[in-house]
């Protein structure tokens, strides 16, 4: 059952990923991207990462993708950019380079699965998150870790978002 769910989700995720990069119109690409993100969120639920799944739906599928949709609508094109340039040569080079990266990834996975031994599950588990027994839920534990161990990175991330917000306004506004 678990295997069936995984293979179904993996097939759909990869298929939708291919649809995203091959779709002719950018609007279709964005819609496939939403579906892809929702399926990845389901995959997170099967990995018992409920909080990350909810964040994925809210921030990715709800926020970022709608931002993309706005930009696609704002940037109205009469002709797709692919039709205006010599895409054959570029596609060939791109596929060649991507094949090189794929070979490297396969080599890494193969090498680590052959030589590397995964650290035992118990070794790492007593570092941060275990506290007050196992009764805490995923979100509760994640919040605890985020606000104690990783408080400063968390605040830095909020500063990053503030800077990005101001930067986006400055860039997109016609005259300040």
């Amino acid at each position: 059952m678990e295997a069936f769910v995984f293979y179904l989700l993996a097939t759909l995720i990869l298929g939708l990923g291919i649809m995203v990069i091959t779709a002719r119109s950018a609007v279709h690409s964005v819609l496939f991207l939403v579906l892809n993100f929702l399926l990845v969120a389901i995959l997170y639920v099967t990995l018992s990462a409920q909080f990350v799944a909810v964040i994925q739906v809210l921030v990715y599928a709800g926020g970022i993708v709608v931002l993309y949709l706005f930009v696609v609508m704002l940037v109205s094109l009469k002709k797709a950019p692919e039709l205006r340039s010599d895409s054959r040569r570029v596609a060939r080079t791109g596929l060649l380079l991507a094949g090189a990266v794929l070979a490297e990834l396969i080599a890494i996975v193969w090498y680590t699965s052959a030589n590397g031994s995964a650290p035992p599950a118990q070794a790492a588990s007593d570092f941060p998150p275990r506290l007050a027994g196992d009764a805490m839920l995923n979100t509760e534990r994640l919040g605890w870790v985020l606000y104690t161990e990783y408080l400063i990175p968390f605040e830095v991330a909020s500063m990053l978002l503030l800077v990005a917000m101001i930067g986006a306004i400055v860039l997109a506004k016609k005259n300040l």
Partner: peptide, 25 residues
């Protein structure tokens, strides 16, 4: 069974949001 990976995912999502906002601008 270690939560650090999920903490990192939260940061990756924050950076992705910032990147999308600035890039689309």
């Amino acid at each position: 069974q270690n939560l650090i990976g999920q903490v990192f995912v939260v940061f990756v999502i924050a950076v992705a949001a910032a990147e999308a906002a600035v890039g689309l601008g």
